[in-house]
Amino acid sequence: MTTSIINSQKLSDEPGNSNFRLKDIIKTVPRECFQQNRRKAWTQVLLSVLAVALGYYSLIVTPWFLLPLAWIFTGTALTGFFVIGHDCGHRSFAKRRWVNDLVGHFFMMPLIYPFHSWRIKHNYHHAHTNKLDEDNAWHPIRPEVFENWDTTRQSAFKLFMRKRLWWVGSIGHWAVVHFDWRNFKTKDQSSIKLSVAVVVVFAAISFPLLVATTGIWGFVKFWLVPWMIYHFWMSTFTIVHHTAADVPFATANKWNEALAQLAGTIHCDYPRWVEILCHDINVHVPHHISTAIPSYNLRLAYSSIKENWGPYLHDECQFSWPLMKQITDECQLYTTDVGYKTFNEHYEHYTEQ
Results as ranks from 00 to 15, higher is better:
Gly339Lys: 02
Gly104Asn: 08
Phe81Ala: 05
His86Glu: 03
Phe65Gly: 00
Arg39Asp: 08
Trp227Pro: 03
Thr2Ser: 14
Thr186Asn: 12
Phe232Lys: 09
Leu333Met: 05
Phe232Ser: 07
Ala156Ser: 10
Asn256Arg: 08
Ala41Phe: 03
Thr3Met: 13
Ile205Glu: 01
Thr79Phe: 14
Asn19Gln: 05
Gly172Ser: 12
Thr43Met: 11
Trp255Gly: 03
Arg31Cys: 07
Ser304Tyr: 12
Gly85Leu: 01
Leu50His: 00
His267Ile: 00
Ser155Lys: 13
Trp166Tyr: 15
Ser12Trp: 14
Arg21Asn: 06
Thr214Glu: 14
Gln326Glu: 11
Leu78Trp: 09
Arg97Tyr: 08
Ala245Trp: 13
Gln353Val: 08
Val283Ser: 11
Arg164Leu: 13
Leu298Met: 12
Ala53Asp: 00
His86Arg: 03
Thr2His: 13
Pro140Cys: 08
Gln36Glu: 06
Trp181Met: 05
Thr3Asn: 14
Gly55Met: 06
Leu209Phe: 09
Ile305Phe: 01
Pro114Asn: 12
His314Arg: 08
Thr186Trp: 13
Asn17His: 09
His125Ala: 10
Leu111Cys: 09
Trp149Arg: 13
Met228Trp: 03
Met1Lys: 13
Ile192Asp: 06
Cys33Phe: 02
Ile6Phe: 15
Leu22Ser: 05
Gln332Ser: 09
Trp42Asp: 01
Pro15Gln: 09
Gln189Ser: 08
Phe184Val: 03
Phe115Ile: 04
His125Asp: 06
Trp138Ile: 15
Tyr347Arg: 07
Pro140Met: 10
Thr328Trp: 04
His116Trp: 14
Met161Val: 08
Trp217Tyr: 15
Phe207Ser: 13
Ser48Phe: 00
Tyr347His: 04
Arg182His: 06
Met234Arg: 02
Phe115Thr: 02
Leu22Ala: 06
Ala70Gly: 05
Ile205Arg: 11
Pro271Asp: 06
Ser206Trp: 11
Thr342His: 04
Glu144Thr: 10
Pro15Cys: 14
Thr3Lys: 15
Tyr230Leu: 13
Ala41Leu: 01
Lys163Asp: 00
His242Asn: 14
Phe82Glu: 00
Thr129Val: 13
Ala127His: 06
Val145Phe: 06
Leu333Trp: 01
Ser12Cys: 07
Pro143Ile: 10
Ile205Ala: 09
Ala244Lys: 10
Ser235Cys: 04
Glu147Leu: 13
Val200Gly: 04
Pro143Leu: 08
Phe184Trp: 05
Cys331Thr: 08
Glu32Asp: 12
Trp138Gln: 15
Lys221Gln: 12
